[in-house]
Amino acid sequence: MKPRTPSYLEKVLASGHLAVTAECGPPRGSNSNVIVKKALGIKEYVDAINVTDNQTAVTRLCSLASVVHLKLAGLEPVLQMVVRDRNRIALQSDILGAASFNIHNILCLSGDHQSFGDCPDAQNVFDIDSMQLVSMVRHMRDNGRFISGDKINGPPKMFVGAAANPFADPFEIRAARLAKKVEAGAEFIQTQCVYNVEKFALWLEQVRQRGLHEKVYILAGVTPLKSAGMAKYMKNKVPGMDIPDGIIKRMAGVPKKSQPEEGIRICVETIERLKEEEGISGFHIMAIEWEDRVPEIVERAGLFPRPRVEQ
């Protein structure tokens, strides 16, 4: 697929390399150094850095300002945007704001329900859904028009991504749902964290049967587990997370102080295993408040050094 935007991430993918992206969570305060420091620490090991948008509905430094800080620090950010908190006016306006700082990647998401966060009494917006956001950004970029049909003077040039969770239910429509996202205009996909490799492979098989892997770049999501406790918590408390008992047993089977190393090892093995799958175009590492271990994961998974693609 020929690149259609100035996105560096898109160029890496289009050149046929396995891409590596990582996620950085902004701080619960206005100190931008926190996120810039996290990002600079992994700069050489990833092709682009996602910044989450008030993840788990907890109020944080906004993703738009954060990606601007990263851009000014010479990094390639992916702006995550959820439709929970903004209507179509605010979304389009923020997209233009990001474009004005030459932010060239966007990940379109629904967002966790506000009942999980620090303001469970809040009203939500959900004026449009994540699929409609994908379609809206593509319309703004490709047709140079707002959703209203009015002309945009200087349209955004964004590589448009969406999420996929192969582990949510009903499983039988998960590939069909990806097909809808591709139809809406998604160009890259970052998946939910993969722990259940067998189920993921089954989903990927359905994706290949539909030929979707040839229409969209799929980056498999991975999150290193820090402890057996974290594994159990994620299995039981995080919606749409599938952690097989075997993984929990493996984490619990080593002494507590060796559990972080075991978590990294599982993460690296998962990447190694998924590299073999046809239709995987890269990896998205979500090391939650553990971003400093990303370089090690990338190196041990044989994904370092990162390719240098001409910009």
């Binding site: 929970r84 629904s110 967002g111 966790d112 329900h113 939500n124 959900f126 859904d129 994540s130 699929m131 409609q132 999420a163 996929a164 969770n165 949510a168 239910d169 009903p170 749902r177 809808k180 809406a184 939910q192 919606p239 749409g240």
Partner: peptide
Amino acid sequence: KRLLNGPCGGS
């Protein structure tokens, strides 16, 4: 989430 193109990843 009033999704017209659901379900979300939390189902």
